[in-house]
Design a binder for these strands. Structure first.
Lengths: 159, 159
DNA sequence: TGTAAAATCAGAATAATATTCAAAATTATA
DNA sequence: TATAATTTTGAATATTATTCTGATTTTACA
């Protein structure tokens, strides 16, 4: 028995991904017209893309300012030893203000993206939560003054 | 005539945002049950949230590996003069491999998030595109070894 | 505080869409 | 090439979106 773990996507799959990435509330009927096939066939493919974990979520992007999240910061951290790297990263991931946790190459160990109401709430997060996480040796916080572009849209290849 | 630019969201709006952020394909019927109100009323609110630009997009999140985007990098840049900051940022934003462009406080001027197929294609992007953008004094590239968390989900307040 | 205007809501009717399923077509495979 | 597996289609049905009207609530403000 061969375990299939190669995800192979054809032209139509990629086109569906492109459409749904642009607007996840697009109807199957609309996609079907675009792709010149039956809505039921589109639905079938969409479901497979979900099952295969190619599509991981349908989400509404919300203006952060509208919900009073005005501060964005990137935090680079050094860890005391790389052994505990994953534990530390997992702890960081649990915090809901933390949008991203990356393990990086280079001087530092982690890069963390954080969104809070203001600098006071960032300070509170660091004092109350970061301080409890083990292995963190040093922290360097970079405040975002202005975001010119922010997407997670992927460049989906032709074939 | 007073121009209204204060976005005020009540409890129900925030609940809708929470639901749609989690799953943008949720039906009005489902939301209506959750919120104990009529589907038509939910729809009305959703449309207003769209109009007010509180909801900016409905998008499908796609597994980057599935579409062969295996490399993620953060690039810090210094600019030769802050005057040209926005022009440079705008040029960077035009590149589709560039997911984020932030103007930051601190030593550097920009922080850029880039996703490409591999290190070769990142190199190509830098050679072909970055090199044409003016005002860039220096570049420091940080390669992501592993992403532990990556969301853009916002922590939506209670009230 | 009272009143008018505006906003919100519910409910019913209709339009559109999602979903299911069996059969046909296509594709992959031995 | 024959066969199996997958994909697609099209029709039927279930569910949902959308519209609209009147009622209710909220809000603004005199």
């Amino acid at each position: 028995m061969i375990i299939e773990n190669t995800i192979s996507l054809d032209k139509i799959d990629l086109a569906i991904l492109r459409l749904m990435q642009e607007n996840s509330r697009i109807s199957n009927v609309h996609m079907a017209k675009e792709l010149e096939m039956a809505p039921s066939a589109v639905l079938e493919r969409v479901k497979k893309l979900e099952q295969k974990n190619v599509i991981t979520q349908y989400t509404a992007r919300i203006n952060p300012v509208a919900v009073n999240l005005k501060l964005l910061a990137f935090i680079s951290m050094k860890a005391s030893h790389s052994i505990g790297c994953m534990d530390t990263a997992n702890e960081l991931s649990k915090l809901k203000e933390v949008q991203e946790v990356h393990i990086i190459a280079g001087d530092d160990c982690y890069l963390v993206k954080v969104r809070t109401t203001d600098s006071a709430s960032l300070m509170a997060l660091m004092r109350n939560s970061f301080s409890k996480i083990p292995n963190i040796l040093s922290i360097r916080t970079t405040i975002v003054l202005e975001t010119v572009k922010e997407e997670q849209q992927l460049v989906i290849p032709e074939k």
